[in-house]
Design a binder for these strands. Structure first.
Lengths: 124, 124
DNA sequence: CGGAATCCCTGACGATACTG
DNA sequence: CAGTATCGTCAGGGATTCCG
C-alpha cells in the first residue's frame, strides 16, 4: 500500500508543497472536516465511511494513515472481537481547523458565482 | 489540452470538492501566491515561469487557464510582436488570498514539527 | 514570447477478493 | 469490523516539437 511522497525534490522547504499540497489531495480535507463535524472525541472507521459514501475503503485507509503520519490524526485500536478502531483529531489538527473552515465558508459563499463563471468558460 | 473536471459526480454541490479540490491541485495555490507576491498589477507568462522554475510550460498554461475559468485570474493579450500576455488576480482572488496566506503561515509555523513526525512515521 | 500539439509514462485511485 | 493484497485503469503531468 502506497503513501504520498515525503518531500518535494526541488523545494524541500517549501511549505506549500510539503505541507499544503499533502493536505490537498482528493480526500484529506474532507476526512478532517468530517472528523470534526462528527462532534465526538473519536470516530470509528465504518462511521467515516458512512459519512463519505463515495470514498473507497482503500483510499480511506491510505488517507487516514497519511494524516496520522503528519500528526493530524490519532489511531487507537481496541483489542476486541470484532475489532474496533477509532480516529481522533490531534491538537495540531485543531489549530488547522479554523483555517480550513474559513476556506470552506469562503467556498460556500463564492460557489454559485464560481460555478457560473466556470460554465461560461466551458461553453467558449 | 485538458482541464480538470467540471463537477463532482456524487456531490455536485459539495464546496470542498468543487471549489477547494480544484484549487488544491499541484500548482494552483502556488501560482496564485506567486501572482500576489509579485506585488504588481500584472505578471507576464515568462516571469511566472522564472518564479516557479520547476513547473513545466504546459502545466503553467493549463493551471492559468483553469484559474481563469473559475474567475481567479484575468488574461490580457497585447497585440504586439513579440506577443505579450499578462496575468492578474481578480477581486475574487483577493478575497481568497487572506485565507490562503493564513494557511501558508500556519504551514510555516508547523512545518518543522510535521516534518519531524513524518520522518518518525516513515521509519516504522 | 507565449503558447498548442503530440507522445508517453507514472502513480493515484478504484474494484475486487481475501483475512485476523 | 477493519483492514491487506492484487490487479487494472486512466488522468495528471513531463518532455519534446512546432507555430504565429
Amino acid at each position: 500500500m502506497y503513501r504520498t511522497t515525503i518531500e518535494d525534490a526541488v523545494f524541500p522547504n517549501c511549505p506549500i508543497r510539503n505541507i499544503l499540497a499533502r493536505l490537498c489531495d482528493k480526500w484529506s480535507l474532507l476526512v478532517i472536516y468530517t472528523l470534526d463535524k462528527a462532534g465526538k472525541e473519536a470516530v470509528r472507521f465504518k462511521e467515516l465511511q458512512r459519512e463519505i459514501p463515495d470514498i473507497s475503503q482503500k483510499m480511506l485507509t491510505v488517507t487516514l494513515r497519511t494524516l496520522e503520519d503528519d500528526g493530524y490524526v490519532t489511531r487507537t485500536v481496541y483489542p476486541e472481537v470484532p475489532p474496533r478502531v477509532e480516529y481522533a483529531l490531534t491538537a495540531r489538527a485543531y489549530t488547522l481547523l479554523p483555517h480550513v473552515n474559513a476556506l470552506i465558508a469562503w467556498a460556500l459563499e463564492n460557489r454559485d458565482a464560481i460555478m457560473e463563471d466556470r460554465r461560461k468558460a466551458c461553453k467558449k
